[in-house]
Design a protein around this nucleic acid. Structure first.
Length: 664
RNA sequence: GCCGCUGUAGCUCAGUGGUAGAGCGCGUCAUUGGUAAUGACGAGGCCGGGAGUUCAAUUCUCCCCAGCGGCACCA
C-alpha cells in the first residue's frame, strides 16, 4: 500500500556521475533506464539502490543514489545470471520431472548448483534433456516478478504444493516477517533475489556439469538429495574459455602426472597407501631433507617414536574415545593357523597404529624432570601415521590412509605462546615461499560447541593465536566453531589445479593433552606447572604436499626438487664416449643426471625426456665433443644454448642448490 | 559412510549374446640421424570379482570390490 501512495510523489535519483533525475509515477530501475535511453533500457539487468542490488521492477519510493547494472558489471552480471540460471534449471527439472522438490540453489565459484529431492536420483544422461528444456524456458522469456508474501501464507502454500523443504526453510524465518517469492511464468520460488527482468537475460552460455549426492543442510544424518552443478557465463566465448581452463587443469592432475612421470602408484591391496617409485621418492627425500634443515635451524630436535602402541595408551590420551573409528587396531597375538579356530582369540591384547604423534611426544617430554629454563622444547618427527579414512574420502596423494607428517610439538610456558606462534608463522611462510607458494589462505578456527577446557582458557588461547597473526602481519579469516576439541587452531590452505583447497599447515594450541598425560615442568617458584603444547605442521603431510606441488608446477619442479635434473644424450653413437664423460662430470658435481645413449633419433629422445619433465637436456654430438661443449635445452624452451661443459655444470649446480630460507 | 558414473593389453580408448581390436609403450631386426614421434616384424588379455538368465555371457540381470565426480568427514 505504501508503495502505491509513494508512487505519486516525485523521486529524485542521483546517478553515479552526480546528476539527478526526478521521476514520477511508479518509479523503478526499469523506468529510470528507459528515461535515460532505449539502449540502456535494453541492456539493464538490475539496479544498485543506495549500495544494495535491486530488481529493475521493484518500486523505488525514496530519493536514492542509484546506478544501473548491465553486462559490463562483470561480478554483478555473473551473479544475477548464474542465480537465474539455477532458477531456470529448477523450473526445467520440475516441468520434466513432476513431483521433484526444489530445495536450495546458491551460486558458487564459476557457477551454481541446485539440490533436488526425488526418489530416483538424476543421472548424467538427464542433463542433456534438462539443458534442452532450459533453452526453451529462456527462449520463452517470461518476466521474473518479485512478490512479497506473508511468512505463514508462504509456508502453507509450499506445503500445499508438496514443497516440504521450502516450507521448512521458511519456518526458520521469524513469524510475522514477509518473505519474497519470485515468479517466472507459472513457476515460483522462495528467494531473496534480486533477479534479472526476464529469463531471456540468462542467455545461452551455460552448461550443466555434473550430478552428485548432497545431504540436506549438509548433515549426513539427513536425507541425501540430488545436486546438479552448472556453470553460466555472459557469452559463449567466456564459457568456452572456462571449459578450456578445466581441461588444462585436468592435465596437471597429480594422479595423471604421477603415472606419466613414473613417480608413484596406488593399488587396491593397499588402499590409500602410496607405492613410491624411485623418481617419486627422490622428490620426497629432497623435500624431507629441506624441511629437516629448516627445522634444525629453527631450534627443533628431531625424534622418532613407536608406530604401534597399546590401546590402553590411547585410552589415556583420549584418542580411544574420540578417534577410535579412524584408527587401525592390531591384536597383539599370534594368529591361529587352524582352519576352524578363530584367527585371533577374543581376549587378545589390542594395539593400535598411531594416528597422531602427539601423545608419544609427550612421553619423550616426560622423561626426566623439566625446568622452566628448558622451555620451549621443540620436538620434531617425520611421523608416519595411519588413519582409517572413509572410502569415499580417499583421493590420490591428497587424502591417504598412511601419511607422513612434518610434525612437531612445542612445549612452552603460557607467556611463550605468542612468540612461539609468531616464529612458527614466519617459518611457515618462509618455507612456502621457498617452495613457490605465495598465495596461502589462513583461517583462525575457534572454539567448537563440544570442547574441553574452561572458557577463560579458550579466550586466552584464541587471543594468543590472533595476536600472533596480527604481530606477523598475516591476513586471515575466521572459521568459527572449527577448532579442535582441545584448542583453537590456525589452518593454512593451498589450492590444487582445479581450485580445490587443501589444508596443509596447521598450528594448534592445546591445554588439554598435557593435563591428560600429566606433563609438567618445575617453574621459577619451585612448583609444578603444566606446559602449553603447540601442535604444528608446515607441509601437513609429505604425500599431500608433493601432490600439490606436482599440480602447482604441472610436473615441472624446480631444479633442486626434480628427481632427474639432467639427461645427457647423443646425436649419434660416435659421441657415446664423450657423453659418458659429461654424465660422469654431472654426477661428480652432485647432480642427479642420467645418460641416454640409445640408438634413437635426437628428436625422439628430446621428445621423450621433455614429456618426462626433465629440466635440462644436454645434447652432445661431434661438434660439442671437439670443443668440450654441451648443447643445453631447458624444459619449456625450444631453444638450445651451446656452452662449455664447465660453465653449464656450474650454472646447474648453482640453480640446483636446496634453498636455505629467506627469513630476514 | 552416502548419491551417481565407470571398470576391456603397461597407458589411452574402440567393440560384440557365438571366448576380442587400435594407437602409444614393450621386444627383435634394420636404420647413425643436430633438438618434441624412422621403419618392419613380434609378444602381450580369466574383458574388475562372484552368482544368475541362456545351447552359449566380455556383452543381459543381481550382489560385491575398486576407481572417478560430489556430499559428509578430514592433514
Amino acid at each position: 500500500m505504501n508503495d502505491q501512495a509513494a508512487a505519486n510523489a516525485p523521486v529524485n535519483l542521483t546517478l553515479p556521475d552526480g546528476s539527478v533525475r526526478t521521476l514520477t509515477g511508479v518509479v523503478t530501475g526499469a523506468a529510470l533506464a528507459a528515461d535515460i535511453g532505449p539502449g540502456l533500457a535494453k541492456a539493464a539487468l538490475a539496479v544498485r539502490v543506495n549500495g544494495a542490488l535491486w530488481d529493475l521492477s521493484r518500486p523505488i519510493s525514496e530519493d536514492s543514489e542509484i546506478s544501473i547494472v548491465t553486462n559490463r558489471d562483470e561480478a554483478e552480471a555473473l551473479d544475477l545470471m548464474r542465480h537465474d540460471c539455477a532458477h531456470v534449471m529448477a523450473e526445467a527439472v520440475q516441468e520434466l520431472f513432476p513431483g521433484t522438490q526444489a530445495t536450495i540453489g546458491p551460486n558458487i565459484d564459476d557457477g551454481f548448483f541446485y539440490d533436488f529431492a526425488r526418489d530416483k536420483p538424476f543421472t548424467e544422461d538427464d542433463l542433456t534433456t534438462i539443458e534442452a528444456k532450459m533453452h526453451e524456458i529462456i527462449a520463452r522469456g517470461d518476466a521474473i516478478e518479485r512478490e512479497e508474501w506473508d511468512r505463514d501464507e508462504a509456508i502453507a502454500h509450499f506445503r500445499d504444493i508438496g514443497e516440504l523443504y521450502k516450507a521448512e526453510i521458511i519456518e526458520d524465518i521469524p513469524a510475522g516477517e514477509t518473505v519474497t517469492i519470485y515468479r517466472q511464468g507459472t513457476w515460483k520460488d522462495l528467494c531473496r533475489g534480486p533477479h534479472l527482468p526476464t529469463t531471456k537475460k540468462v542467455g545461452v552460455a551455460f552448461k550443466l556439469m555434473k550430478v552428485a549426492g548432497a545431504y540436506w543442510r549438509g548433515d549426513s544424518n539427513n536425507a541425501m538429495l540430488t545436486r546438479i552443478y552448472g556453470t553460466c557465463w555472459r557469452d559463449k566465448k567466456e564459457l568456452k574459455a572456462y571449459l578450456f581452463r578445466l581441461e588444462e587443469a585436468a592435465k596437471r592432475d597429480h594422479r595423471k602426472l604421477g603415472r606419466e612421470m613414473d613417480l608413484f602408484h596406488l593399488q587396491e591391496e593397499a588402499q590409500g597407501s602410496v607405492f613410491w617409485h624411485p623418481q617419486g621418492y627422490l622428490i620426497w627425500l629432497q623435500l624431507e631433507a629441506y624441511i629437516r634443515g629448516r627445522l634444525k635451524d629453527a631450534g627443533y630436535a628431531e625424534i622418532k617414536t613407536p608406530q604401534i602402541l597399546d590401546s590402553k595408551f590411547w585410552e589415556q590420551s583420549g584418542h580411544w574415545s574420540k578417534f577410535r573409528e579412524n584408527m587401525f587396531v592390531v591384536p597383539d597375538e599370534i594368529p591361529s593357523t587352524d582352519d576352524d579356530a578363530p584367527v585371533i582369540s577374543a581376549g587378545a591384547k589390542l594395539m593400535a597404529l598411531k594416528p597422531m604423534n602427539c601423545p608419544a611426544h609427550v612421553q619423550v617430554f616426560k622423561q626426566g624432570t623439566k625446568s622452566y629454563r628448558d622451555l620451549p622444547i621443540r620436538f620434531a618427527e617425520f611421523g608416519c601415521c595411519h588413519r582409517n579414512e572413509p572410502h569415499g574420502a580417499l583421493h590420490g596423494l591428497m587424502r591417504v590412509r598412511q601419511m607422513t607428517q612434518d610434525d612437531a610439538h612445542i612445549f612452552c610456558r603460557e607467556d611463550q605462546v605468542t612468540s612461539e606462534s609468531v616464529d612458527f608463522c614466519n617459518l611457515l611462510f618462509s618455507v612456502y615461499r621457498d617452495l613457490g607458494f605465495g598465495d596461502v589462505k589462513v583461517l583462525l578456527a575457534t572454539r567448537p560447541d563440544v570442547r574441553a577446557g574452561a572458557d577463560d582458557v579458550w579466550d586466552k588461547a584464541e587471543k594468543g593465536l590472533e595476536d600472533a597473526l596480527i604481530a606477523g602481519g598475516v591476513r586471515y579469516e575466521m572459521a568459527p566453531g572449527e577448532g579442535a576439541f582441545y584448542g583453537p587452531k590456525l589452518e593454512f590452505h593451498l589450492q590444487d589445479a582445479i581450485g580445490r583447497t587443501w589444508q596443509c599447515g596447521t598450528l594448534q594450541l592445546d591445554f588439554v593433552l598435557p593435563e591428560r598425560l600429566d606433563a609438567a615442568y618445575i617453574g621459577e617458584d619451585g612448583a609444578k606447572h603444566r606446559p602449553v603444547m603447540l601442535h604444528r605442521a608446515i607441509l601437513g603431510t609429505l604425500e599431500r604436499f608433493i601432490g600439490i606441488m606436482i599440480e602447482h608446477y604441472a610436473g615441472r619442479l624446480p631444479l633442486w626438487l626434480a628427481p632427474t635434473q639432467a639427461v645427457v644424450t647423443t646425436i649419434t653413437s660416435d659421441a657415446d664416449a664423450y657423453a659418458t664423460k659429461v654424465h660422469a662430470a654431472l654426477v661428480a658435481a652432485g647432480l642427479r643426471a642420467r645418460l641416454d645413449v640409445r640408438n634413437e633419433k635426437i628428436n625422439y629422445k628430446v621428445r621423450e625426456h621433455s614429456h618426462a619433465k626433465v629440466p635440462a637436456i644436454l645434447v652432445v654430438g661431434q661438434k660439442e665433443e671437439e670443443e668440450g661443449l654441451v648443447s643445453v635445452r631447458r624444459l619449456g624452451s625450444k631453444n638450445q644454448t651451446v656452452l662449455p661443459l664447465e660453465t653449464a655444470l656450474e650454472a646447474l649446480v648453482l640453480e640446483g642448490k636446496m634453498p636455505e630460507g629467506d627469513v630476514g
